[in-house]
Amino acid sequence: MRDLKERVFVALSLAATLAGILFLSILIIDVVMDGASRLSWDFLTSFPSRRPGKAGILSPLVGSAWIMILTALFSFPVGVGAGIYLEEYAGKNRFTWLIEVNIANLAGVPSIIYGLLGLGLFVRALALERSVLSGALTLTLLVLPIIIMSTREALRTVPFSIREASYALGATRWQTIIRQVLPAALPGILTGTILAMSRAVGETAPLITIGALTYIAFLPTWPITFTGSFPFVEFSLQGLFDPFTVLPIQIFNWVSRPQKGFYTNAAAAIIVLLIFTILLNSLAIYLRYRYQKRMRW
């Protein structure tokens, strides 16, 4: 009798665990069945259109790439820097405590609130308008807590003896960090950063809030153009200030239309987005797994 109760419980908890995975499988099968037929080279290289059969995802794809690269460029140095400060420099005092509570809280602030911050601060107060730059800065603030927390965790796994050995050889604090501690912690930091980028690429709400467009048929200005005369190459930052759209917004736009044809487009775009985010997540999970196995000090 006792045994039966236990068995029922195990079966129940196993079922609960499998529920999530079952859901994941159904979701992927459903989307692939809806959208796979629409996927083609043309779909990837055409601009969105009023006619579902002609529409493609070129501008959202390029927009997403712009946003992700810029967000990575902004958030990686600042996030890692903040992590290093909190783990290696900060004393145990009230101010440090305040920063810690604050970061924990920021990690839980809904993404749409970051959108309102971006709208009030970057779009209006700094007059950056509804540009690629506003979007990337907003997402930078959104993912910073993730990068800071994973940097700290990675730094914590580096044993103190490594630092002491480095100090004993006469290295300064910064030399110790940059030559010993940081390389050892790098896989952990990269894992966190990749997860943060996967989050940034899938975010929709904050970018809609800052006013990213839902229909756009041109690309941001390319940063490098080759010319016929000396010096043969021109750099331009104009792209930063151009309007943009991203893949999740395009999906949202298609889902909210009444015509069935756009649902197929949405499903096809979701396949592209999922391939991308699942690849990023798997890479991060794999990195962490490898790292956990290998690093035994």
Binding site: I21, G202, I270, L274, T277, I285
Partner: peptide
């Protein structure tokens, strides 16, 4: 697998 489930963009869940 659960982590992948957590990493799926919310717009996909909406669809």
């Amino acid at each position: 697998l659960l982590e992948i489930l957590a990493g799926i963009p919310t717009v996909v869940y909406g669809y």
